[in-house]
């Protein structure tokens, strides 16, 4: 099969040569694909804004020796348009794309659940119904769960005892007093409840949570994610916590 078609979310782009770009896309059927978009940086390019990060696109690709070549692209939904005019949402969205890129290591290995999760995450982020950092943490927890790293939040990660005392990243979630390793965090009960709500998609509980519990939850989730990825997420440093007033140009 030299020519194939798939839909996907553009995760990131790299400049290549004079006017080309290498575009990394998480596709529905093929998994993560890296393709060359020729001439995409020219203002008269036929691709236009279709291959910008966050865009949900319908692609036609040609199998190449090292990289595939993107021959056609049609926009399904430009999620970036909603995010780019709201800086906190844009930074949270960038962290989502980077995480998807890091979590899915191999190319052309189907990852349908990760794809659906990313589409859902970007849609929720763009709709503006919830605080961006909450959406980001929910995405982190669920993408880790899909990858097989769901944190234990209801009972001790080691002995399954119901009484939990601390959160230990190395143990894989909450732990009881007896199993608690040195250096475990001791978050508030509300923080664990918030993490559980985000993992289950209980937005009523998540939206009602207090700022200090959200901050504590973000710290734990970010540490848990990066420990399992064995890699830092560069975008996290730039994620803005509180939504600022939306800005539009005159």
């Amino acid at each position: 099969m030299s020519l194939y078609r798939d839909e996907g979310i553009v995760l990131r782009t790299h400049k290549l040569g004079e006017a080309d770009r290498i575009v990394t896309v998480l596709t529905r059927r093929t998994g993560k694909v890296r393709g060359v978009a020729k001439g995409v940086r020219r203002t008269m390019s036929r691709f236009g804004a279709r291959l910008e990060p966050f865009t949900h696109v319908d692609l036609q690709l040609h199998n190449g020796r090292t990289l595939d070549v993107i021959t056609q692209a049609e926009t399904i939904h430009p999620y970036g348009e909603a995010l780019v005019h709201d800086y906190p949402r844009y930074t949270a969205g960038s962290a989502m794309l980077e995480t998807a890129d890091r979590l899915i290591m191999g190319e052309k290995e189907p990852a349908l659940r990760q794809f659906l999760l990313l589409v859902g995450g970007l849609r929720t982020l763009g709709s503006g119904g919830h605080e961006p950092r909450l959406v980001l943490d929910a995405y982190f927890l669920r993408s880790l769960a899909v990858a097989g790293y769901a944190p234990a939040l209801e009972a001790c990660a080691r002995c399954k005892a119901p009484a939990v005392r601390a959160f230990a990243i190395v143990a894989g979630g909450v732990v009881c007093g007896a199993c608690r390793p040195a250096g475990s965090a001791v978050p508030a009960g509300e923080t664990i409840a918030l993490m559980s709500a985000l993992l289950k998609g209980d937005w009523a509980t998540a939206d009602a949570s207090e700022g200090r519990h959200r901050a504590e939850c973000s710290g734990l989730v970010a540490a848990y994610l990066q420990w399992h990825l064995e890699h830092g997420i560069r975008s996290l440093r730039h994620v803005e916590r509180e939504p600022a007033s939306s800005t539009t140009l005159d």
Binding site: E52, P53, G80, V84, H85, D86, Y87, S245
Partner: peptide
């Protein structure tokens, strides 16, 4: 603000405007 008309350029414009 004459940053590039791509996603990074738009985000930079939004940040500067704010």
């Amino acid at each position: 603000i004459a940053t590039d008309p791509n996603l990074e350029g738009e985000a930079t414009a939004t940040y500067l405007a704010r």
